[in-house]
Amino acid sequence: MSEKLPQQPQNEEVDLGQLFNAIGNLFQRLFNFIGKLFKGLFSIIIYAIKPLIVYFKFVLVIIVITTILGYIYQRTKAPVYYSNMVVKPNFDSKYQLSSNIDYFNALISTENIAELSNIFEIDSTYAKELVSFELEPGPETQNDLFIEYDEYVQSIDTSLVDELSYVEYIKNRDLMSGRLFAIKARSTKIDIFPKLQQGFKKTFENDFSEHQKKIRDTVAYLERQSLNMQLERLDSIQKTYLEAIRNESNNPNLSLGFGNALPLQEEKTATKEYDLFLKEQELRRNLNRLNQTVAEENTYYDVLSGFDKMGKRDKSFTRRYTMLFPVLALMLFILGFLAVKAFNYIKNYK
């Protein structure tokens, strides 16, 4: 039995050695895979820019020619101006706004000048100067996002709160999740933008938003009636307690106590009167909050910042043709080179 005992540590050392070797081989394969991945990406990049180096003179000629063509095209093309209007849609009219933006762009692309002129109530000479419309998220602060997340948490089942953190909520937000929206209008006419603002009024006033507003007004009316009724009943109860207090003061023989203990009726009445006062304040706060909400959201949309009287020059990359043309030419050149190489490889493949 004593001869078998020393063999146990040797077996454990063998097992640990095999385990460490397996872990080492696993890390080695991982590092080899990462190395091959970076090597492959590096090879792709080098192979993509290789034609630019091999045919450097030809590429230089292409850049010069396309830059000149881009400059000429930019000089002959009318400049594009843009302006933003920040709005806060109410009664879920933001969905109709998004749909109408797509509709306006479709009218512009099909050159339906008559319909655009009718929608925005502008002259056809102004309507044909429209270039595009774009809907973007409005300005939001970190506090706005925290408030929005808190309202969302309160509106869902408590069992789902732990499954969606604040970071995940912000990551999964889309354009329609916001409350503020920026409408970007582009036109070749620098002073057209104030004329477009009135046309967007039709966008927010639609059947669905009108239905939502009627529901809100009805619910607010019923809630206001309920609060006023509670205040009237509370006022009646307060008058009853005041009358009881006056009766107690006029009747010193009326008391509530135990033996020779001090009467307790005065303290009890005062406590209930104070509770009634607190309840009245709570009801009045709720009523004021309801009236404030109805007053603040009594229109289909609020304009936080209207269109500027004069638009700004659009200097985005897609409008800077002296840079856009050369970049597109180089991309086409590289794609053409790769296509030729692929064609020759397939042709000579055995």
Rank of each mutant, 00 (worst) to 15 (best):
L262P: 10
D157S: 15
Y349K: 12
G138E: 03
P51F: 01
I237P: 00
Y103K: 10
S93W: 08
S109F: 03
K195V: 01
D144F: 07
L256F: 14
S83N: 03
R284P: 00
V14D: 05
S305E: 15
E280W: 04
D302I: 13
E267R: 10
Y126T: 10
M176Y: 09
Y169V: 02
S177K: 11
L332P: 01
L116Y: 02
I65D: 04
D92T: 05
Y349C: 05
K202N: 14
F181A: 06
V59T: 14
L19Q: 10
S98C: 02
S124I: 12
Y169D: 09
V167S: 15
K341L: 09
G40S: 13
L328R: 01
I215Q: 13
F20L: 13
P89T: 11
Y166H: 04
T269W: 11
I192S: 01
F277K: 13
F317K: 02
D275W: 07
Y81L: 04
Y301N: 10
I334H: 06
E115N: 03
Y149S: 04
N100K: 13
Y103N: 12
K315F: 09
I45V: 15
E12M: 11
K202E: 04
P137K: 07
A244D: 05
N100F: 06
K39I: 08
G336I: 05
R313N: 13
D102I: 04
M1R: 11
K88G: 00
F91K: 03
R246L: 13
R284C: 00
K350G: 06
I53L: 13
D15P: 02
E296S: 13
H211P: 02
T67C: 07
K171Q: 15
R173Q: 15
R179D: 14
L222K: 10
Y82A: 05
I192C: 01
V86S: 11
F42H: 05
G336R: 01
R186Y: 09
M85L: 14
F33I: 08
V340H: 09
K272T: 12
K347Y: 10
V303D: 11
I53E: 02
G40Q: 08
Y103Q: 12
V303K: 02
N251S: 14
